[in-house]
Structures are given as C-alpha cells and as structure tokens.
Simulated assay, not measured.
Amino acid sequence: MLVNADFSQSVVVTPDRYQWSASPQSGVERVMLDRIGAEQARATSIVRYAPDSFFPAHAHPDGEEILVLSGTFSDESGDFPAGWYLRSPSGSMHQPFSRPGALIFVKLRQMAPHDEQRVRIDTRDPANWVQEGQGAVCRLFSNAHEQVCLQRLAPGQALADPGAGGAELLVLEGELVAGGQRYPRGTWIRLPAGAQPGLVAGDSGANLYLKTGHLAGMAQLT
C-alpha cells in the first residue's frame, strides 16, 4: 500500500480531508497520512482509541514515535495524557490501551538503525520550553538524522524554511497561513527538501509539532 509516498512532493492533509479506516483491532481507527507497506509498514498516522480499547502486545522494528493529542494513552510503562511525547527505539515492545479514549499522532518504522534512545517528555510542563525570538520551543529529540520539537509561533511569525532535509509538521493549536490558504488545528503538512512554503502563524498564533532533516533522500523510496 502506498499513501502519499512520493516524498519529492509537498502534501497537505486538513481535518476535513481525514479518512478514518478501521485497524485490525476493534475500537482503534486511523487516518493514514503517509504509508509504504501493508499492515507492517513505514507509516505516519493519526490514531483514535475508543474508551477501553487496546492493541495486543507487539514489537516495533525501526521504532515508534507518539505525540498524545487528546485523552490518555497507556501501556505498561504508564499513563500519558495529552501533551506527552513518547519515543521508543527499534525492537521495543508494548501493549497499548486507553481507558478514557485517546487521539495520538504516530510515526512507525522511521528511526535510524543506531537510534536507541527512549524518550518520555511532558510538553505541557513549562520547564521544557525555552523562548526563541518571538516564539518558544520545546525540544524533543535531536541527532544527525532528524530534529524534533514543538514550536509556539507568535501571530504573523514565519515558519523557517525546511532546508536540505525537508520538514513535517502537525498544527496543534491556532492556524498557519500561506498564499491565502488557512491550515487549522489538525492539519498535517510534509515539505520536501528545498521547499519554501511561506507559512506564517495566523492571528492567534500557532502551536505545532515539527520534525526536520529526516526527509533527505526520501524521494528514492517511492
């Protein structure tokens, strides 16, 4: 299965274009944002857990990255309410579930082979944020392959161009604007290397998940 698998092209998925599909487990649905492969795939998704739903125990070759968007996501390591960032390296295993229900942003099989760092960060803790110019940044992870953070942009503040490694972002609050188009909360955008999107925060500013550097050479995978 290929979903938005041409990494040389910009992709925008706004909430009104979400296409929910059932997962193999009852009570768990997903929006496939990009995907290369069948059920065991390199994938980026938004996943929705109904109350008291779960997934059987499973391993994660090439790792798993999660940002909890709403509700509470849980596994053997704890309960993680909205705002938690979870990063589990290749070979890790868990049995995820949600008692109240949850909405999460998930990236599967996208970590470098040498990436063995396990990360758990509460992005709603003010101590994890630092001011940068007009806005603020919560740094989540960085290595030679990728940089991951949350950003708060002030009204009218421009998003930096992604550079040689491309960028991927999810609007968490507020909106981004470019060329007369508005991208509200829940919009996912993938920008190839060298793109110059001209994105700026709307009148109320914007909070967003941002990953950069990881798309270098990805066009070869289509």
Rank of each mutant, 00 (worst) to 15 (best):
P113C: 11
P56C: 08
F105V: 10
Y49A: 03
R99D: 06
S45H: 02
D79A: 15
T44H: 00
P81A: 15
Q151S: 13
R118Q: 10
S74F: 05
E116W: 06
L170I: 09
P100R: 10
C138F: 02
P61N: 07
F54R: 15
P100M: 11
A160H: 06
R124L: 12
Q110P: 00
R42G: 01
A82M: 08
A102E: 03
I46D: 05
E39W: 07
D125N: 15
G91E: 03
L153N: 01
A50N: 06
A43N: 02
F80D: 00
K107A: 05
P126S: 11
D75C: 10
H94L: 06
D79H: 15
M111A: 02
G133P: 08
N143G: 13
E116M: 14
L69G: 08
A41G: 04
Y49Q: 04
Q134E: 09
A164M: 08
G78A: 11
R120Y: 14
G165V: 13
V47N: 07
D122E: 09
Q147G: 08
V119W: 01
M93L: 12
G133L: 11
P155R: 06
D115E: 15
G83Y: 09
Q95Y: 05
Y85C: 12
L153W: 00
P96T: 10
L86C: 06
L170K: 14
A57V: 07
L69F: 02
E39G: 03
H60F: 04
V137S: 05
R87C: 04
A41T: 05
V106C: 02
T72P: 02
E64R: 08
P89G: 05
P89I: 12
A112K: 00
F54W: 07
M93V: 14
A43I: 11
V130G: 03
D75M: 11
L67R: 05
I121N: 03
Q131P: 03
Q157H: 01
L170V: 11
E39M: 13
V68Y: 01
D115V: 08
L69C: 05
Q134R: 03
A43L: 13
A102H: 02
Q40A: 13
R139I: 03
A50W: 02
R99E: 15
R124Q: 14
A154M: 13
P113N: 13
L67K: 06
T44D: 00
R152W: 08
S77V: 09
W129E: 09
F80L: 07
G165M: 13
I104H: 03
A102S: 14
E39Q: 13
A59L: 04
F80E: 00
R109I: 01
A144G: 14
L103E: 15
A158D: 05
Q40I: 13
A127S: 14
G101T: 07
V106K: 03
E132R: 15
A154K: 06
V106P: 00
R139D: 11
S77Q: 14
F141S: 13
S74C: 15
D115L: 06
V130F: 08
